[in-house]
Write a protein that binds this DNA or RNA. Structure first.
Lengths: 333, 333
DNA sequence: CTGAAAGCGCTTACAG
DNA sequence: CTGAAAGCGCTTACAG
């Protein structure tokens, strides 16, 4: 049988209200009474029912997390940051992915309506930005981890795509590279434009530019990176530095260059973006612009928690800086 | 303001009890009454409060998941299998990791006591087997995803470590390899023993064996694999096939062999275990024993769900078969 | 400082 | 077939 607050009240010879006060650290409880209640609680190992507390208070002390996929190489980092942060405050994390077609999303929607969680953390599943915006407008606290430069109209945590790309360009320049190629991310992503712009900006600052024929669309996959590189090679235009918009693409770039007999970094330097675990295991290991994924998860979770604590959610995105991780594919000179 | 069952009852001109009956598909409701209630529900978009339903019924329709780390390369696969399965049945997943020291676990314990979830899925965090066993003994439905051959005294899903290792051995034999080395997993793990035994068994069946000096302890990390391989090479004993007990180790093996000037698979064939995403991106790509991670997650979740449906949890582990994935590091001959 | 009572939003015997 | 009432296990004004 479950131990309830009534049992505690009975044994401590007080009312349930007083037990509740002690439990929640309310003021105006006699010190000795409080002590007695605490003893009883320890003795019988009482823990309040999460559901009953939630129902009475109207809050679940639970956060929902919406993620398009759990198998992406960097998702674990973000999740880990989130879970660690929430657990510290005693909050639970309800995990949703919506990759089982249309009724998948409607099921999620019903959990929202059922008030299953107090706030939502989201990594944008395809084509759900409007939906999320609606939820936010309806009063659900939402913080998005903006991995693709969507710049939503609600609170979010992002990273410095532009500055990160600038850093990549400067690093390649410092290594003496002058002829650049770019394998982009999906064109519809904001981060793709930002990374491209940043890269070009830094080159322009020293009077250089990227030959438009050496900017090839990728799709953030390894195979896409391979195909893109084959296209680059087939132009016959020489290049000695490649900036891939994510690490998976960069892996494909490495593979294609190897197949073509180009030495990395001897003939060509390669820089990726993300710093997923694979990056350090690549051959050669990958120089890349590190996204602070775990920190972004932590920041998003903190934002939501402090909102529950009474603070307003910031309108502007919280932007955490990238950093360049130098490895063999584009070594320091 | 939240729409409640009372509102529906009022508009449909019935009692809350009747609305509840319609909601839960109970028999003995007049067809036209039921229809009227359903219309009102649709009209005002009523969704029952998860907390209130949970409190009244004593069940949360939520499953807890305890995982030691979310950043392991294969964790995403397992999680994805679990979440997909639970979502299909409308169950939520509460995610816990307990890697913030001792109070981390006690916080989890209090969520257990608070009845925050109806059942627990677990990938064993270090030294928690007894604790989990206690929870199961106290009546919490538990299913463990046994990734390390712990063979717990409660329901679990596992894979064929022994047979998988046998397959690795046979594959190497078929490729004409005769002198074998092994980089093991942590010695205290059951799966390490099973993989070692299986490998030896298959060799013994054709009258071969592994030189004991060529069996080196690894620790399931890439660096551990590198160190182990350097030890193997320093023995001066020739070998032409390496079986690493997981893929991360195998990556380290590849790296060390490359550094030592040994060609893979020309001089040495290498086989790993797991088939994590990195495996296909290794250079050369890694032949490995595939663990059906996502399927194991699905199976564990299904087991729990059918238990909620009234079935008893099976005492024996559910064992899903491994399969050999042949890539360049140990090609088919 | 403390208790009785109402309320959170449902479900479930019990009557009819 | 349907409703009134009690109950799930808490919290929170309201009195005193």
């Amino acid at each position: 049988m479950r131990v309830t607050i009534a049992e505690v009240a009975l044994r401590a010879q007080v009312s349930k209200a007083t037990v509740s006060r002690v439990l929640n650290g309310k003021p105006d409880v006699d010190v000795t009474t409080a002590e007695r209640v605490r003893q009883v609680i320890d003795e019988i190992g009482y823990v309040p029912s999460a559901r009953a507390v939630g129902l009475a208070r109207g809050r679940a002390r639970t956060v929902g997390m919406l993620a398009p996929s759990l198998t992406w190489p960097w998702m674990g980092e973000v999740l880990q940051g989130i879970v660690d942060t929430l657990e510290t405050e005693g909050y639970g994390l309800l995990l949703y992915t919506v990759n089982r077609g249309p009724d998948s999303l409607s099921q999620f929607a019903s959990h929202v309506s059922a008030n299953a969680f107090d706030g939502l953390l989201v990594i944008e599943p395809p084509d759900t930005l409007n939906y999320i915006a609606t939820l936010y407008a309806q009063g659900l606290p939402v913080v998005m981890i903006d991995d693709r430069g969507s710049h939503p109209q609600f609170p979010s945590v992002a990273t410095t795509n532009r500055e990160g790309a600038q850093g990549a360009a400067r690093h390649l320049l410092a290594a003496g590279r002058t002829k650049f190629a770019v394998v982009t991310g999906p064109v519809q992503f904001g981060c793709t434009r930002e990374r491209l712009d940043g890269f070009r900006d830094a080159l322009a600052a020293v009077g250089l530019s990227v030959d438009p024929r050496l900017v090839v669309d990728g799709d953030f996959t390894t195979d896409g990176g391979t195909v893109a590189t084959e296209k680059l090679l087939s132009t016959g235009i020489p290049f000695d530095g490649v900036f891939a918009h994510n690490d998976l693409s960069a892996m494909g770039v490495l593979r294609a260059l190897r197949k073509a007999g180009r030495d990395v970094p001897g003939d060509v330097s390669v820089v990726g973006f993300d710093d997923v675990p694979i990056a350090s295991h690549a051959e050669p290991s990958l120089t890349t612009v590190r996204q602070p994924l775990q920190e972004m998860g932590v920041a998003a979770a903190r934002m939501l928690l402090s909102h529950f604590g009474g603070e307003v959610l910031p309108e502007k995105p919280l932007v955490l800086p990238t950093s360049l991780v130098v490895r063999q594919s584009a070594p320091q000179i």
